[in-house]
């Protein structure tokens, strides 16, 4: 037996998460299905093992937060902060994701087939995010490292106060945030977008994307700027 299912309608969430943290490794379980998630918070938070978790429905807040090594698939929608602070592994949301998807992820890949709400990839620290739909305002805010690929449109203030993270957008950008600018795509950018789209299962042409990165004018404090950025 290398797979198991947990029915959250009958089993407390803590039993599932405890199993994922401990017994899943010792018992060699490779695949766990979560039935009746019904919007419960914190599903598969802190998973730190090469286990595939399939959530058969909609997840609540912070699903797959702090993920390392594992692979979490959410068949429905995800609430606030999906894959927050992910370290490695992959999270795939087949529906839409609410605010702060992939916030401060250090590594790994977050794929959202639908749209995400505001603040997607806020403070991204090295993870990759691919969104099949559109992202809400303030996405990529203060993102420090990592890449975001947005196949649809972006809302207001995209990439505000960006550091070294790079955002690729296929659709329209309602507005760029402070210090974010559109740059020419280099061959390495086309390659990166192509690889990320392939990993996420989307077949768009990388040439349809534009690159948003930091103009780096906020990197050093300028007393003469008089707060006018």
């Amino acid at each position: 037996m290398d797979s198991l299912s947990f029915d959250l309608a009958a089993t407390p969430l803590r039993d599932l998460n405890r199993f994922l943290h401990k017994e899943a490794v010792t018992q060699g379980i490779r695949h766990v299905t979560v039935l009746h998630p019904d919007g419960a918070h914190n599903i598969a938070v802190g998973l730190d093992a090469p286990v595939a978790v399939e959530i058969a429905g909609h997840a609540g807040y912070y699903a797959a937060g702090m993920l390392k090594h594992g692979e979490v698939t959410i068949q429905g929608n995800a609430g606030t902060g999906v894959a927050e602070n992910m370290m490695s592994g992959k999270v795939h949301v087949k529906g839409f994701a609410s605010v702060s998807a992939g916030a401060s992820a250090h590594g790994g890949l977050l794929v959202v087939d639908g749209d995400t709400s505001l603040r997607c990839g806020i403070s991204l620290k090295g993870g990759d995010i691919v969104v099949g739909g559109s992202v809400g305002s303030f996405s990529g805010f203060m993102a420090q490292a990592g890449r975001m690929v947005i196949c649809g449109n972006a809302g207001d203030a995209l990439g505000d106060s960006l550091y070294e993270a790079v955002i690729y957008v296929r659709g329209n950008i309602k507005s760029l945030g402070a210090d974010a600018r559109i740059e020419d795509m280099a061959e390495s950018d086309y390659q990166a977008v192509g690889e990320l789209l392939a990993a996420a299962g989307f077949s768009y042409d990388p040439h349809e994307f534009k690159r948003v990165a930091s103009a780096k004018s906020l990197y050093h404090w300028n007393a003469d700027a008089n707060q006018e950025y």
């Binding site: 019904d38 919007g39 429905g57 909609h58 609540g60 929608n77 609430g79």
Partner: peptide
């Protein structure tokens, strides 16, 4: 506010 109130 959240889907968990709609699930039923």
């Amino acid at each position: 506010s959240e889907f968990r109130s709609l699930a039923h």
